[in-house]
Amino acid sequence: MQGPPVFMDLALEDQVQELRVYLKELGAEITEEKSPKGIEDDLHKIIGVCDACFKEGSEQEVEKVLNDIVSIMVVIPLERAENIILAFCEKLTKAPGTRLGMVTLRALWLLYQSLDDKSPMRYHVYYHLVQVAKQTDQVRAVFKDVDNLKQQFATCPPSIEQMQKLYRLLHEVLLASGQSEQAAKVMYELLGTYTAENASHAREDAIRCIASALADPQTFLLDPLLSLKPVRFLEGELIHDLLSVFVSEKLPAYISFYEKHKVFVTSQGLNHEQNLKKMRLLTFMQLAETQSEMSFDLIQEELQITENEVEAFIIDVLKTKLVRARMDQAARKVFISSTMHRTFGRAQWQQLRDLLYLWKQNLSGIQTGMKKVSKAQLELIKH
Score class of each variant (00 low, 15 high):
A253L: 05
A330H: 11
V310W: 05
N308V: 03
V323Y: 01
A325V: 08
F296Q: 02
I315E: 10
Q300H: 03
T283I: 02
Q268V: 11
A312D: 07
L281C: 12
Q268E: 12
S338V: 10
L322R: 14
A325G: 13
H261C: 09
I305G: 09
F284C: 03
S295Q: 04
Q304E: 15
Q274S: 15
L287D: 02
L281K: 08
L281I: 14
E302S: 00
E259T: 02
L318Y: 10
V334P: 10
V323L: 00
I299L: 07
Q304R: 15
V323T: 07
L282I: 08
I255F: 09
Q286A: 02
S256I: 13
E249Y: 13
K250D: 13
E273S: 15
V247T: 13
I305S: 08
N275P: 07
A312V: 09
F313L: 01
T306S: 14
F313E: 00
V334N: 07
S292D: 11
N271M: 10
K319T: 15
E301D: 11
T266L: 08
L287S: 02
F264V: 09
E293H: 03
V310P: 02
V323N: 00
S248Y: 05
Y254G: 14
F313N: 00
D297I: 07
I314E: 01
I314P: 02
A330K: 13
L251Q: 04
P252H: 10
R326S: 14
I336Q: 02
V317D: 11
V310I: 11
F284V: 02
F313C: 00
A331T: 14
F246P: 10
E302R: 04
A312Y: 05
K250R: 14
L270N: 06
E293I: 00
F335E: 06
A330P: 06
Q268K: 12
A312K: 07
T306N: 12
R280C: 01
F264R: 07
F264E: 11
Q329M: 11
L270T: 05
A253R: 12
I299T: 04
M327E: 04
Q329W: 06
Q329N: 12
K260Y: 08
R326G: 08
M279T: 12
H272F: 09
E302L: 00
F246Y: 06
L251P: 04
R324P: 06
L251D: 03
A325S: 12
L322G: 14
E289K: 12
L276W: 05
F257S: 09
M279L: 14
R280Y: 03
T320I: 12
R280W: 02
G269Q: 06
E311I: 01
E293N: 02
K262Q: 04
V317I: 15
F257N: 10
Q286L: 01
S256R: 14
F313W: 03
E302K: 04
H261A: 09
A288W: 06
K262P: 01
D316W: 01
N308T: 06
L322A: 11
L276H: 05
R332M: 10
T320A: 13
S338Y: 11
Y258D: 07
S295G: 15
S295V: 03
D328I: 00
L287V: 04
A325H: 08
A253H: 11
T283E: 01
F313T: 00
Q300E: 06
I315M: 10
